[in-house]
Design a protein around this nucleic acid. Structure first.
Length: 554
RNA sequence: GGUCCUAUGGUCAAGCGGCUAAGACGCAACCCUCUCAAGGUUGAAUCGCGGGUUCGAUUCCCGCUAGGAUCACCA
């Protein structure tokens, strides 16, 4: 047995499987021609990030549109940063946005034949591969401490050379296998590094599915592939996992482009075919006039929980993200009047190449459209679901009478261009609370915003006439014609034009009369259609409110 | 700083050698109107700079500039 084999055996005495065994265990997938296998590979380090949702959406689209497989792998090799429970949370949040996986990690269990789908459970697989690498002298143990590494980096900075563990700076790369074995037996801690044979001065052409050819210097860093805790680093886990899981297209953020040479080199060294890569543009944020990557820590909209808490319908968020991914989605959705990303023909090559600024205005636009197209019934149930966790004050109103709530939401809804005044569920409460008697009393407790020029007696007379004459059985148009008559008898002109040409003859015009009624009923100068409000409130409540205002003014 | 990516209105962007340079969001005005939310009409606003190539560059090439990403036993 040669020295490298002995070293490998010393490091992994209990690994008896080979790469060939693994190939047999994870045979090629049986998919039709052109079907793509994609994955979403998040780390369980906290809430789902908006950029991650974007990536997941694209990955799923690519797989589904091609009749392939979309799976999820949990990249939980960083035990220090892991937030317990966030893996499950990720799955749940993804599901809220309609992103379901075909196979992979599902929180409490794995589904699929290419698992385990949690990297922390795949240690034995990585070890098989690394053992083979050591046997071929393509990986070696490194005993450098973090202090030594820091010292190397510092000296490199002083010498103004490229920092990193390479060439003669890679002191452990030339340790003899005997020496390495000796140190291991002594109990020194170590990591395993990949022995790079790349040349920093040589460029390789790599093709990206979105960007086309990219020319980057070869990797010459001996990167760590197995940490001292026995878990792999991202680079190595990516290569091994996506090989054995037979991923055909890796979708990930643009920030990974720079480590692409590392991945390519490892695929080559192992004799494996690398997957296609699609490096997605980052979602950016404007700060002090500069763009920057959306940051989870600084930007509330970076976590998708922001949208959930504010009450944006998931469909609206997805539509917005899709409009960033493929700008023709917007045009498509205009014609189809639906915001269903599943039926849209997505294209990787139509993606923009630079990061989009997150645009809340645009999201609001999509969201208004989406909400306006929901039935009152659906909006009621969706907003209730939201209120349960986020808005006790709204929930209170809903719970008083669900049917009444639904009727409020149905105002000006069932028509060709429905009302678009809610961009998110959190907009609802403020706009509908006047429908509830106690809230109404609260809203009108102060001075009412009547036009100062309007005499109290005029207001009172109009409201009194209204109480007596109003007919609740009329339809919208007839009702308004009827209301004009009432206003006329109180001295209002039937039109603005008429009023303007005979200022001294009238106390105001029909618009003023409507304003008086509106303020009296809602406490505000702005509201939805008056007739609709009357219908929902009903005669008893209307009369009570008007009586209240009359008394207040008397 | 090295390396890589990117560059059309405020934002998202179409364009792929010849166009009055689409469209959407936002903004403004007007119309409609019982107010608001809408809806309709109109408008303001863009090819970063400098060299080439070409009869002709927003488009192709090279610089520059700017922005971004990345340089860990994090992913």
């Amino acid at each position: 047995m040669d020295a490298y084999k002995q070293l490998a055996a010393a490091i992994f005495p209990d690994v008896d499987e080979t790469i060939e065994d693994l190939e047999l265990r994870y045979p090629p997938r049986n998919l039709k021609e052109g079907a793509q296998v994609t994955r979403f590979a998040p780390s369980p380090t906290g809430f789902l990030h908006t950029g991650s949702l974007f990536t997941a959406m694209v990955a799923k689209k690519v797989a589904k549109d091609s009749g392939g497989i979309f799976f999820l792998r949990l990249e939980d090799t960083d035990t220090k940063r892991e937030v317990s429970g966030s893996g499950e949370q990720l799955i749940a949040q993804l599901a809220e946005f309609g992103i379901m996986i075909d196979e992979g990690y599902l929180g409490n269990r794995d589904v699929g034949n290419y698992g385990p789908y949690r990297q922390s459970k795949r240690a034995s697989i990585y070890k098989v591969v690394i053992k083979s690498l050591i046997e071929r002298n393509l990986a070696y143990p490194c005993f450098c401490s973090s202090e030594e590494l820091d010292a190397i980096r510092k000296s490199q900075e002083e010498e103004k050379v490229v920092p990193g563990y390479y060439g003669h700076y890679a002191v452990c790369r030339n340790l003899s296998p005997e020496e390495a074995m000796h140190r291991i037996k002594e109990g020194q801690t170590y990591v395993l590094r990949f022995r790079s044979s790349g040349d920093h001065l040589k460029k390789t052409e790599i093709s990206d599915l979105i960007r086309g050819e990219i020319s980057i210097a070869e990797n010459d860093l001996d990167i760590v592939i197995l940490k001292s805790d026995g878990l792999p680093t991202y680079h190595f886990a990516h290569v091994v996992d996506d090989h054995f899981m037979h991923t055909t297209i890796v979708t990930r953020g643009e920030e990974w482009i720079s480590s692409l040479p590392i991945h390519i080199e490892m695929f080559k060294a192992l004799g494996w075919k690398a997957p296609g890569y699609a490096h997605l543009p980052l979602i950016m944020k404007l700060e002090n006039g500069n763009k920057r990557k959306l940051s989870k820590r600084k930007d509330s909209e970076a976590a998708v929980s922001f949208f959930m808490e504010d009450g944006y319908p998931p469909r609206a968020v997805m539509a917005y993200l899709m409009s960033i991914a493929n700008s023709n989605f917007e045009e498509w959705t205009e014609q189809n009047h639906i915001f269903d990303i599943d039926t849209f023909a997505f294209s990787l090559t139509k993606m923009s190449l630079d990061g989009a600024l997150f645009d809340l205005d645009k999201l609001n636009f999509f969201s208004k459209e989406v909400i306006a197209r929901m039935s009152a019934h659906r909006l009621a149930s969706q907003s209730k679901k939201w209120a349960i966790n986020n808005a006790p004050e709204l929930l209170d109103l809903i719970n008083r009478n669900h049917e009444y709530y639904e009727r409020i939401l149905n105002i000006e809804r069932e028509k060709d261009n429905p009302r678009k005044d809610f961009a998110k569920y959190s907009d609802i409460y403020r706009q509908i609370r006047f429908f509830y008697h106690d809230h109404y009393l609260d809203l009108v407790s102060g001075p009412l915003p009547f036009n100062e020029k309007m005499a109290k007696s005029t207001i009172i007379s109009l409201l009194r006439d209204f109480i007596i004459h109003n007919d609740y059985s009329l339809d919208n148009d007839s009702w308004f014609a009827d209301f004009k008559q009432t206003a006329l008898t109180s001295g209002f002109a039937a039109s603005n034009k008429e009023y303007k040409s005979n200022l001294e003859k009238y106390v105001g015009h029909i618009g003023d009369a409507a304003e008086i009624l509106r303020i009296s009923l809602t406490g505000s100068k702005n509201s939805p259609n008056l007739w609709a409000i009357l219908q929902v409130l009903g005669q008893k409540e209307v009369d009570e409110r008007l009586q209240y205002v009359i008394e207040k003014l008397s």
